[in-house]
Simulated assay, not measured.
Amino acid sequence: MRRPAVGCEDRAGWQGEGRRGTDQDESVATEVTTALLRRPDAAFKAMGDDTARHWGNRAQAASRPARTSRRTHEGV
């Protein structure tokens, strides 16, 4: 019995495309996540996963501008 051949014969070319693949993966992940969150039932199930909810909350907090104090310290 022989082991099947590896699916990617041109390994050097495959590794060279790694960076572009990562950028494309990020773009695809963004589109898929946006589509998922627009579907209430799917979003509810996804946010039921503690890890997914943690990273979703963290991403949301990172995209907000920093809070500024409403009080001014002038005249105090």
Rank of each mutant, 00 (worst) to 15 (best):
M1P: 06
M1E: 08
M1I: 09
M1H: 05
R2Y: 06
A5W: 08
V6I: 05
E9C: 09
E9I: 08
E9P: 05
D10N: 07
D10M: 01
D10S: 02
R11Y: 02
G13C: 00
G13Q: 02
G18F: 01
G18S: 11
R19M: 10
R19S: 12
R20Q: 09
R20G: 08
G21R: 15
G21Y: 01
D23A: 00
D23M: 02
Q24P: 05
Q24K: 14
Q24E: 14
D25G: 04
E26L: 15
E26R: 13
E26Y: 10
S27G: 05
V28E: 07
A29P: 00
E31A: 15
V32S: 06
V32G: 05
T33A: 15
T33R: 15
T34E: 13
T34W: 00
A35G: 03
L37N: 10
R38Y: 04
R38E: 12
R39L: 11
P40I: 09
D41S: 11
D41V: 00
A42M: 12
F44K: 14
K45L: 15
A46G: 04
A46T: 13
M47T: 00
M47N: 04
G48P: 01
G48C: 01
G48F: 00
D49G: 00
T51M: 05
A52K: 02
R53A: 14
N57G: 07
R58H: 09
A59V: 06
Q60V: 04
A61I: 08
A61C: 03
A61K: 03
A62W: 00
S63D: 08
S63V: 00
A66C: 03
A66E: 11
R67S: 07
R67T: 09
T68N: 13
T68R: 15
S69E: 14
S69F: 09
R70S: 14
R71Y: 10
R71H: 10
T72Q: 04
T72A: 04
H73C: 07
E74R: 14
G75W: 04
G75K: 11
V76Y: 09
